[in-house]
Design a protein around this nucleic acid. Structure first.
Lengths: 351, 351
DNA sequence: ACGCCCTTCTGGATCGATTCAGTCTGGATC
DNA sequence: GATCCAGACTGAATCGATCCAGAAGGGCGT
């Protein structure tokens, strides 16, 4: 079998502790002996202290867990998530912390044990709406955690970095309203679960389960209410996934119907790009008869001329990591609200 | 402190082993007792067996390490790497394996210990040219590993999934040569280390340290040699990074010089897009006076009309994961060569 | 009543290190 | 020459589980 600390100790004729010190606390032994030990280790093919055993004894691991409550591969498919991870990994790198990407089985019970079995010192939970069970499991392990969305009635240990979804969405909608649009559609991913793509009847934004989508729809509604357009006059479109194709599918029938909206406000850039795809296929070029807005300001948005609400993706990731790796003394500092900026491009114009 | 197995055992009045079995081998005890144990655990706030202790005893971790020998955050910046990771994570997810992204310090000695300290069952090494030290460290730990490039004189344990870089590049260049181009520039990232952006004198492709770049340049050269264009007649352009900006910077002076090339063959799509940016800024629209080709076929390539060599990014990731997670019995099956396809778009045309 | 098997549960050994209170040694101090 | 001390090294306890040989108890056939 592979050699252990003890084998090296035997070979050199010293105690296990001394070999351990040779690796982890060089100041505890003479340089000469340390060299002898390291040489012997090399000869024996000893690769250094076993990381698992070390973690067990030391009580910490040196890795933070990253949880995507939807599919893990989503993390690499969604441009915003990728930029978030870029920021996260940069900060982790600076702290020498590794990132453990934990895949979650579809079965909730199994998913919970996946969270309980992850060897990490803390968790970053990328919010997908339904994550309370995950947070509960994390708290059960008494590990620190950060979420990527504002939590209203947060548990004291709950740290987060997010934006004011509702206010940001309201700003987008105010821009659209100011351009004179009154017949508008709001487009979101999984506005209601298990619902086909296309228009949806909703009593109000409060009925939307996903908090981020709920906040954004509410913000859109706020702005239109302020100019006299009631919630019931707004069309809500449901997309079955956060992808261009899903966005296109959700909006298709509505755009070709009679009395199509003059503006479509999407809850994400990816969905908005899907809308632009549909318009482009119908032969429309910018500026369109239909104004379109997105959310997040991903790289593709600029190229497509998409008006959108920018949120600092990399910074969000960086701060999430820092909240875990250098925990603020003041608990209030554990709640970070990021700035957002309306980026007006060519996809919006007068009604 | 947090409760342990022993505490739960004491509370219920059974042995440690029985509590352990309640979690890991439910068939070893009666359902009734199992429920009593699990209930007691819940009451005590016991979060389930400690993952680190379990790993130590069981001898495996349930995670595979992912090594980017350049900066970790590069993984999320390069579109090809992201798609690779998407494939990797999808396969890992299916096997219930977690992904440990290990950041490597710039200092080589520290980087080596980072590899030695990662608690994983195997490594996927995303090739960056200089990774032999990492492979050595991994072999020292007797862990299985996969690299993302073909290795010629591979260690027996060395599994890989790659493409025939040279043949693929040759195919691209043959396409360009067939269009009549004879005055061409070849563009690569870090053709020689520590060299400013722009043209470079090289005796031949053999002088390039990075194996992937070397293979691609050699393939380009092969095709042009076949039509009578000598290596010395080719311009080699060095980019200082794999980004659009770096690609643009590398090519700028050459494009505006006298006798500019009629075609630029880049070693990656990102670099090629940088060249297109430069051309667009100079007011050129497709089809250009200058043909441009890329490599990889990332998503942006299609939108930009870039002719490129497609390699199956997600599949590469998937196969890498599978080579680790379901090791082939036949060692020859540990060497996978992927298919590549020339995708001709509008960025190439007759000279 | 006896032996046998099967299920259920136990106790101790073990995984591979780290930690900390000591012990030992040689040299400086008075 | 006795005392003290800093530096170098040791040993046992510990981290929190899993594993396995075996003990206890119950049911069954003869």
């Amino acid at each position: 079998m592979k050699p252990t600390l003890q084998d090296v100790a035997n070979a050199v004729g010293v105690s296990r502790s001394t070999v351990s010190n040779a690796y982890s606390r060089p100041d505890q032994l003479s340089a000469a002996l340390r060299h002898r030990i390291l040489d012997a280790a090399r000869q024996l093919g000893y690769p250094g202290p076993n990381p698992t055993a070390r973690s067990l004894r030391r009580g910490f691991v040196g890795a933070i867990g990253v949880l995507f409550t939807s599919q893990l591969s989503y993390a690499f498919t969604d441009p915003f998530a990728v930029r978030f991870l870029a920021g996260l990994s940069g900060a982790a790198e600076r702290h020498g912390a590794a990132l453990l990407l934990v895949p979650l089985p579809a079965d909730p019970a199994l998913a919970r044990t996946a969270v309980e079995n992850a060897a990490v010192d803390g968790f970053c939970v990328y919010c997908a709406g339904d994550e309370e069970w995950a947070l509960e499991a994390i708290r059960g392990r008494a590990l620190p955690y950060v979420t990527t969305a504002v939590a209203e009635a947060a548990h004291p240990a709950h740290r987060y970095v997010g934006i004011d979804e509702r206010a940001a969405a309201r700003t987008v909608a105010e821009h659209v309203a100011a351009l004179g649009h009154r017949r508008v559609a709001l487009l979101g991913d999984t506005v209601l679960p298990d619902t086909p793509p296309g228009p949806l009847r909703l009593a109000g934004p409060g009925d939307v389960p996903h908090p981020t989508t709920r906040g954004r729809l509410a913000g859109f509604a706020d702005a239109f209410a302020a100019v006299g357009v009631d919630w019931s006059a707004l069309t809500v479109l449901n997309a079955t996934g956060n992808s261009r194709a899903a966005g296109a599918a959700a909006v298709a029938a509505t755009l070709t119907g009679d009395a199509p909206p003059t503006a479509v406000l999407a809850c994400s850039d990816v969905l908005a790009l899907g809308v632009l795809d549909t318009l482009a296929e119908a032969g429309h070029r910018l500026p369109h008869p239909v104004s379109v807005t997105g959310f997040d300001d991903i790289a593709e948005a600029a190229a497509a001329g998409l008006t959108t609400m920018r949120q600092p993706a990399e910074e969000k990731g960086r701060i999430a990591a820092e909240l875990l790796l250098e925990p603020p003394a003041d608990p209030a500092a554990g709640h970070v609200l990021l700035r957002t900026d309306l980026i007006v491009r060519t996809s919006t114009g007068p009604a």
